[in-house]
Amino acid sequence: MKKSDRGRMVRALPLGDILEQVLQERGLSDRLHKYRAFTCWAKAVGPQIAAQTQPLRVRDKILEVRVAHPVWMQQLQLLKPRILARLSEHLGPGVINDLYLRQGRIDQNPQATAPHPPAWKSAKLSPDQERHIADTLASISDPDLRRTMERVMRRQAQLENARRAAQSSATGSSGS
């Protein structure tokens, strides 16, 4: 079939929808729904608890969770009804009915401890710096090279601004 013979695609489906449909056809959608508890765990319990816990598996509507310390296990035992209610909000009622807490070492959770970008990356450039970059790059005709050079020059200016700000705050605080 030639490209011109087929009708125009109205809208491409998101990959998540396609996967969900395939899993549903194979009778695995219930399992997938249960394991969504892993992705919503940090939202349901908050960053402080998420940093001390790690969901491991789901068996018979029971979510097994590894906990870093016995004190946290005791605290989570007290918070269990609230956590289950929150999980029900995210997953729907009856998906997870209980938590099984197990003490153990927690693998570093990238969602709970996502590093913040360095401050220099969000630094704004002055109008003079913007003008200098534009003037410097005006003679470059290749758009890809111009974009790359602009990115490099912006980052360099942001770094210099951050260094100057750090030096001025260090000299200002030491002089007090």
Score class of each variant (00 low, 15 high):
R26K: 03
W72T: 03
Q77P: 01
W41M: 05
T39W: 08
K80A: 11
D98H: 11
A51W: 07
E89N: 10
L91H: 11
W72F: 10
P81A: 05
Y100I: 00
C40E: 01
L99I: 07
I62T: 15
S88R: 13
C40F: 14
R66M: 06
L78I: 09
K34T: 09
L28S: 02
R26A: 09
Q52C: 08
V95K: 10
L87T: 10
L79Q: 15
K43Q: 12
I96R: 11
T39C: 09
D98N: 14
A44L: 02
L78E: 01
D98W: 11
G94R: 07
K61W: 02
R26F: 12
A68F: 09
I83E: 03
W72E: 04
L32S: 09
E64I: 12
G46I: 02
L63G: 08
R26W: 11
R57W: 10
R57A: 13
L79M: 15
A68K: 13
L23P: 04
A68C: 08
V95G: 11
F38I: 03
V45R: 05
E89R: 13
H90K: 12
L91S: 08
A85M: 06
A50G: 02
I62P: 02
T53E: 00
Q77N: 12
R57Q: 10
L28D: 01
L91A: 07
V22D: 07
L23Y: 12
H33T: 13
L76S: 05
A68Q: 13
R36K: 00
E64T: 15
D60F: 01
H69W: 09
Q74L: 13
V67N: 01
R59D: 12
R36V: 00
E89A: 11
E89K: 13
W72I: 03
L99G: 05
E64P: 00
K80Y: 07
Y100F: 13
V58W: 09
R66F: 00
A37C: 06
L23E: 13
F38A: 01
I62R: 14
H33W: 06
P55H: 08
P93R: 14
V58Q: 09
Y35D: 04
G46V: 00
S88Y: 09
A51K: 13
G46A: 02
L99E: 02
L23V: 09
L76C: 06
F38P: 00
R66V: 12
W72H: 03
P81C: 06
E89T: 12
A85I: 00
A37Y: 08
H69T: 12
